[in-house]
Amino acid sequence: MAKLEQLSCSKHFGGKLTKYKFRSTALGDLDARLNIFLPGNSVHGKVPVLMYLGGLTCTEDNAAQKGGFMRDAAAEGIAIIFPDTSPRGAGIRGEDDHWDFGTGAGWYVDATHPQWAKHYRMFTHVTQELPQIIEASGLPVDFSRQSILGHSMGGHGALVLYLTSILSGRNTYRSCSAFSPVCAPSVVPWGIKGFNGYLAGGVEEGRDKYDATTLIGKVKGPVNILIDYGTADEFKHQLKPDLFADAARKAGFDESQVRVRGQDDYDHSYYFVSTFASEHVKFHAGFLKA
């Protein structure tokens, strides 16, 4: 199994934010990078963890530097993992032609189209490979107490990974939250482009496997979901939070289980994310520390 190689480390709110890389099997033998924040209390034993998934064009650094999560994570004694958003340097034709597809835009799917299937396996990378590599490294992270959150494309990823884990019976994550998530990718331009590119079955395959609005209608049993979006979001037409909320209500989930909040006059940026970061960390802490 590949080993984590430390690239940098900075003390932060009494803990440490460390950047690593390793050779990823899931991503077709490419280097993968990530940041891990460990709170100060992790020196005494394993701590619960939040997995944060970034949005289009982001790397492992954007949320770590601009998200505003670590003060509250440190206070709550929770680790945060920030993976990259796609493979890098696969050398696939067209990989760098568009900002919303290819490099920086992995969409958290396991590609089935032959052109992309070797390297673009972000679903497996996040759900299986990263926990295995981190546990094998001996870092004090307790993956039995894990929750997930994300922004934009990463909000889509967080919802899909969370709901898929419930449907599979694994229940990997105790809770899920999202900022400005792409809630119904099979009906909006960003998602249609991603699904038609990465998946051999195109939008139909994506709707069945990777569309949160479809998946929430299949879930039986409790869920813990918080979604925030800005009413002034310039990409709101790509997000469709209303479709997700409607599907959740039809599936029998009330606001105690699925809360979708429109925040007046906020946009899509990290100014918005950092404003509500504290509330999201505390939301997850209620489940991770129960």
Rank of each mutant, 00 (worst) to 15 (best):
I216P: 07
G230F: 13
G262K: 14
K16E: 12
L56W: 07
D29T: 13
L199Y: 09
L159D: 11
F101L: 14
G286K: 11
L30F: 11
E255H: 09
G202M: 11
E279S: 09
K11Q: 14
F283V: 04
W190K: 01
L53P: 10
W99F: 15
G91V: 04
G194W: 11
V43F: 09
D29P: 13
S42E: 01
Y52T: 09
L199V: 07
R23F: 07
L243P: 03
T127D: 06
V47K: 04
K218R: 15
Y173M: 04
G221K: 13
F123H: 14
G262M: 08
H119N: 14
A117F: 03
A184G: 03
I92P: 00
T85F: 10
Y52Q: 13
R207H: 11
D228N: 13
I133M: 03
A248R: 01
D110W: 00
S177I: 12
I36N: 01
L139N: 03
L17W: 07
D264T: 08
F287E: 06
R207A: 10
I36P: 03
P131V: 03
G94S: 07
D61E: 13
A26W: 09
P181Y: 14
Y271S: 15
C183G: 07
L243G: 01
H151Q: 14
G102R: 08
H284M: 03
R121D: 03
T172Y: 04
S8P: 07
T18L: 00
D84K: 05
G94L: 13
N171R: 14
E204T: 08
H125S: 06
S8T: 12
L30R: 14
A2D: 05
G154P: 12
L7M: 11
F37Q: 01
G102F: 09
R71Y: 12
A136F: 04
F22I: 11
A232H: 07
T213G: 03
A117R: 07
W99S: 12
G197E: 06
H44L: 12
S168W: 01
S278N: 09
D29Q: 15
T127N: 09
G55S: 13
F82H: 08
P222F: 04
G104Y: 05
V258F: 00
G201R: 07
G201F: 02
N35G: 07
G77A: 06
